[in-house]
Computed example of a mutant assay.
Amino acid sequence: MEPTPDARKRPRRLRCDAEQNRDRIIDAARKAFRREGLSASTASIARAAGVGIATLFRRFPTRTDLLAAVFEDAMEGSRAAAVAAAGRESAWDGFREYVEAVCGLQADNRGFAEALTMHFGSAKELERKRQEGFAAFTGLIERAKAEGRLREDFTPEDLPILLMANAGVLAAAGDAAGEASRRLVGQMLRAFAADPVEPLPPAPAPKRLLRGMVRQRRAGAASG
């Protein structure tokens, strides 16, 4: 017996619904991780996505699977930025560009700082990208020190510290977050340099920064 037209459409509709559920879960998880960090609960993510917890675990059986889906693009961006920076003739220029790029990625996905330092054992492709980016960055560090441009006591662990500080600026500065973040990164790059010469990016206007911080506090109070 030939299947009816409705029967032929049903699997396609189910696939479409499943993809929409997946997209909603990823979007809700990205927002939750940005707001609460990677400790955000899967139950709250499922509620925000408008799906049941069983649906979430059907799409993402482990928390690592969910993290991999959320941070896949950002991790690839970080890896590509590190590899491109490592190809620069001046290691200091490459180092500076990579730090600026990673902090820019963090502005779009604020849970990324935590993800960058995690080990994704079961998400092999994500872990490969993380390790490849880290290897390129550590190579840049050694080359920049050999050039005499990067201070000798800088370690790879200083980057997550910068990202934690940048996360605070991004969370607090509201509309002025982009300018405030660039200013912070400029300050930190000067601190990392053996002989700082680059001028700082301009600071946000005081009134703009204050307005942004006030709006951000009000938004946080309203959501709480």
Score class of each variant (00 low, 15 high):
214 V>P: 08
124 K>W: 06
103 C>E: 03
154 F>P: 01
37 G>K: 12
211 R>G: 04
152 E>H: 12
14 L>H: 14
198 E>G: 02
112 F>H: 07
209 L>F: 12
102 V>S: 05
29 A>T: 04
112 F>I: 08
45 I>L: 03
100 E>G: 02
31 K>A: 13
30 R>V: 08
196 P>Y: 11
205 A>Y: 06
2 E>Y: 15
114 E>P: 05
186 G>K: 00
32 A>D: 10
172 A>G: 13
134 F>Y: 11
92 W>L: 05
73 D>V: 12
219 A>G: 14
6 D>P: 12
196 P>T: 10
73 D>S: 07
56 L>W: 01
182 R>S: 03
31 K>L: 11
172 A>F: 09
68 A>W: 00
4 T>S: 11
106 Q>D: 05
52 G>K: 05
206 P>Q: 09
103 C>D: 00
42 T>R: 07
72 E>A: 14
192 F>Q: 00
157 E>H: 06
124 K>V: 10
73 D>H: 05
211 R>A: 13
213 M>G: 15
62 T>Y: 01
120 F>Y: 06
60 F>M: 02
215 R>E: 10
205 A>K: 10
122 S>Y: 08
37 G>P: 14
64 T>H: 07
23 D>Y: 06
22 R>D: 00
64 T>V: 11
39 S>Q: 12
74 A>N: 02
10 R>I: 15
38 L>F: 09
129 K>M: 08
198 E>Q: 11
31 K>T: 12
24 R>E: 03
222 A>F: 12
83 V>A: 09
24 R>K: 10
147 E>V: 13
221 A>E: 15
142 E>T: 15
155 T>P: 00
57 F>R: 13
82 A>I: 01
43 A>I: 09
114 E>C: 04
204 P>K: 10
204 P>T: 10
45 I>M: 06
35 R>S: 14
50 G>T: 04
90 S>C: 13
148 G>M: 06
186 G>M: 02
52 G>T: 08
131 Q>H: 13
22 R>E: 05
2 E>I: 15
113 A>F: 02
34 R>T: 12
141 I>T: 06
42 T>E: 06
99 V>Y: 02
109 N>R: 03
124 K>Y: 04
148 G>H: 09
201 P>H: 09
77 G>Y: 01
189 L>I: 00
207 K>I: 11
20 Q>V: 13
5 P>S: 07
140 L>S: 04
51 V>G: 01
107 A>V: 14
71 F>L: 06
184 L>S: 01
164 M>W: 10
214 V>S: 07
15 R>P: 11
106 Q>V: 12
8 R>V: 13
97 E>R: 04
73 D>F: 09
